[in-house]
């Protein structure tokens, strides 16, 4: 990998990047990716997705549309799911990023969602899968935190959302799957959703 980790910059987390000269188009950016600090010197145009794929060789996050229309690039940013293709890396200085590579435990034990996806054959080509998995982690967290979805009844005001199949479908509708594995994805998320560990990730637990 050509770029790997650039020399560590001692810049402050969440600090203002050094852009002394007008017309400066690069900045030093420090990210905590899957629990490890990664210091990069990046063109401002570089998205989080391209920073992961092209600069950190973390190619698990996929580029399906590059415009926030397919969800294949979904990662967790400070614990929340987001389309990494629409985030400029420079804006994330100091943030924690969890990608699909950070879901399994260091000993290789799969995350409950990963296990469920395998068990239910919740993918075919696998290209949307990392995004589906990160999105599902985020969706389970949102449900646990009581976040409603468009199909949640108005009356359901407090407490964790009950994840019916209809709820899972709606909450995961930001992740396209052209192989049409949706029914299996819904079963996998429903299955894993009963496991309290499914809202966690190994690297976040370790931080």
């Amino acid at each position: 990998m050509a770029h790997a980790t650039d020399p560590p910059a001692p810049g402050p987390a969440h600090g203002t990047p050094d852009h002394a000269a007008a017309g400066d188009h690069r900045s030093r950016v420090s990210l905590r990716v899957n629990g490890a600090r990664r210091d990069l010197d990046l063109d401002h145009r570089v998205t989080l997705l391209d920073a992961l794929r092209e600069h950190l060789d973390l190619t698990g996050s996929k580029k399906g549309c590059d415009h926030g229309q397919c969800g294949a690039c979904t990662v967790l940013v400070d614990g929340r799911r987001a389309n990494s293709c629409l985030l400029l890396a420079v804006t994330l200085d100091g943030c924690g990023i969890t990608t699909v590579e950070g879901l399994a435990a260091p000993d290789g034990a799969l995350h409950p969602l990963q296990r469920a996806f395998v068990e239910h054959d919740a993918f075919q080509c696998g290209y949307c899968t990392p995004g589906q998995l990160c999105s599902a982690v985020g969706a389970l967290r949102e449900a646990a935190a009581g976040h409603p979805s468009h199909v949640t009844a108005d009356a359901a005001q407090a407490g964790p959302a009950v994840l019916t199949a209809e709820e899972i479908r709606e909450r995961l509708s930001g992740n396209l799957c052209r192989c049409g594995a949706y029914p299996a994805i819904v079963r996998a998320v429903a299955d894993a959703g009963t496991d309290p560990a499914a809202t966690g990730t190994a690297v976040e637990a370790a931080v």
């Binding site: 926030g68 799911r81 389309n83 985020g138 979805s149």
Partner: peptide
């Protein structure tokens, strides 16, 4: 309701 009718979960997070 209107917010939840828009975009996707991950877009609404941002």
């Amino acid at each position: 309701r209107a917010l939840l009718a828009g975009a996707s979960g991950q877009l609404r997070n941002v």
